[in-house]
Structure formats: structure tokens, C-alpha cells
């Protein structure tokens, strides 16, 4: 079954922008408005982070956004309402990024079913590596959702094969050693990694972590990346304008348009 994600990549004429927001940041209403803003500004895929209290893969910008969302009452029930509300007005592919425990507590099967029913197309779980992936991937496929798995510079060739075998939608390439957050540099190891993955993977490869500049987008797409994921750079526009919703939407929209215009 081909999801909206698969169709977006097969139809692409340029690298795709995966624009990331934290669900419920700074609150439900503004979060939904921000998703629509990002969508109308031209993001090709929207990634929403389901907040977890202990986000070990995230840097300070995302941590603060996650904290804001949790304080405003975000939970897995409201996540699926948010996705449903967004989906009512848009066919843009949507990916949920979260950590294992919110999925496990809902029940792995129930989480993926609810995500699929709400209108999500892919789910990525930051702390589920290949070793733990089986039940998550199975539930994902059963629900018609792409199981998005991570690849890193430190991933060996044998692990990469196992990941490619199980993953769906696209491969999320962790483009920097460390946590999420803007870095502005092109990591030569990531360039090599993109080439290594493209040799064996039929799935699109999309780097994320530390990407915020057009120069990075250009370098990674030259190496063969099918898109890029931008998170902290967008989420920071939200965090810098708490209490000023109009400015917030304008800044987020502007940031996304600038990124899209650099996606050549």
C-alpha cells in the first residue's frame, strides 16, 4: 500500500521539505494554526512531535517546546484530535515523531491504529532501534502506516540492511552525532552516509538533526538526499514569540517559505 508519503516522493521534482513542529506547542489551537501555516507555506511533509517528558534525542529548543506542550495539556488523545483536525482540511503527508513510552502506554497496536484513523501517514519512534523495532513495524504496517526508521553515521552496513528491510516511507538519517538543534554545518560524514545508503536502499533518504540553512539543503541533496527535515529552526520561531500568535505564524510561515525556495 502506498501512503501519501510514498506518493509525495515518487512525484517529487525537487528535494522535499519535511517541516517539524511540536504537537500542542504552545497550545492546541496555536499548534493547529501553525500546522496549517506550515502547510500553506509549502512544506511537503509535516512532522509533528508527540511530546515525551524525557526526550533524550532532543536539544534545548525542542526540549523547551515539548515542555510547553506538556504544560498546556498535550497527550496522545489530543495528539490524534489535532491530526484529525488538520487532516480535515489538508492532504499533505503527516508523520508523527515520538518516543517509545507514549506508544507503549497506549498499546502499540492501538497507537498505530489511532494514528492511522486520525490521518497520519508515518510514525517514527526516536528510541526504538532495529533491535526493538519488530512489534512497532508490524503494528505500523497493520494500520497502513509507514514505519519510519532511523539511520546514523554509526550504523554498520549489516544493521543498515536490516533497517532498510523493515522501514517504510523514508529513512530518517541522523545528520549529526548528537541531539536535535541548529548547527549550520555540512557534515562530510553525513554526505558519505547518504551515498552509502543510496547504493542499497530503494527508500528515499532524508537527513534531519542540525539542518537549518539553504547551504546544507543544497549539499545534502547534491549527495542524493531526497529531502531534508527541519525542526529546531522552525520550532524556535514559535518559542521566540510566545504570547504573540500573529507574529508567530508570520515568522513560521516566512521560515518555511525561505526553506522551500532553497529546495532546488
Amino acid at each position: 500500500m502506498i501512503t501519501r508519503i510514498g506518493r509525495a516522493f515518487s512525484a517529487r521534482t525537487r528535494p522535499l521539505l519535511v517541516a517539524c513542529l511540536v504537537a500542542g506547542d504552545p497550545d492546541y489551537g496555536e499548534s493547529l494554526a501553525m500546522m496549517r501555516e506550515v502547510d500553506s507555506a509549502g512544506a511537503d511533509i509535516i512532522e509533528v512531535v508527540m511530546p515525551f517528558s524525557d526526550p533524550v534525542a532532543d536539544g534545548p529548543v525542542m526540549q523547551q517546546a515539548i515542555q510547553r506542550a506538556l504544560s498546556a495539556g498535550m497527550n496522545t488523545d489530543t495528539l490524534f484530535s489535532l491530526i484529525r483536525d488538520f487532516r480535515a482540511e489538508s492532504e499533505t503527508p503527516l508523520v508523527v515523531l515520538t518516543y517509545a513510552n507514549p506508544v507503549v502506554q497506549r498499546g502499540i497496536g492501538a497507537f498505530y491504529r489511532d494514528a492511522g484513523d486520525a490521518g497520519a501517514d508515518g510514525v517514527a519512534v526516536a528510541d526504538v532501534p532495529l533491535e526493538e523495532a519488530e512489534p512497532f513495524c508490524m503494528a505500523s504496517r497493520d494500520a497502513g502506516i509507514d514505519p519510519i526508521l532511523f539511520v546514523s553515521q554509526t550504523t554498520s552496513d549489516s544493521r543498515l540492511e536490516g533497517i532498510v528491510e523493515r522501514a517504510g516511507g523514508f529513512l530518517y538519517l541522523v545528520a549529526a552525532l548528537g541531539v536535535t538543534g541548529m548547527r549550520g554545518e555540512v557534515d562530510p560524514e553525513t554526505i558519505g552516509c547518504i551515498r552509502r545508503i543510496k547504493r542499497i536502499s530503494p527508500l528515499p533518504v532524508v537527513p534531519g538533526f542540525g539542518i537549518s540553512s539553504p547551504g546544507q539543503v543544497h549539499a545534502y541533496s547534491q549527495a542524493g538526499a531526497d529531502g531534508v527535515i527541519v525542526g529546531s529552526a522552525i520550532v524556535k520561531e514559535v518559542g521566540d514569540r510566545i504570547g504573540r500568535p500573529h507574529e508567530m505564524r508570520a515568522a513560521v510561515g516566512q521560515r518555511v517559505r525561505a526553506l522551500v525556495s532553497g529546495m532546488v
Binding site: 533524550v56 534525542a57 517509545a100 526516536a126 528510541d127 526504538v128 532501534p129 532495529l130 533491535e131 526493538e132 526508521l149 532511523f150 539511520v151 546514523s152 553515521q153 554509526t154 550504523t155 554498520s156 544493521r159 533497517i163 541522523v174 552525532l177
Partner: peptide, 12 residues
């Protein structure tokens, strides 16, 4: 038990 960590840590 298990190893629920980001992929980057698996090599370590």
C-alpha cells in the same frame, strides 16, 4: 530490559 536508545548509540 532491552535497548530502547537512538540508533546512533547502538554501535556503542
Amino acid at each position: 530490559g532491552g535497548c530502547f536508545v537512538p540508533e546512533t548509540l547502538m554501535a556503542a
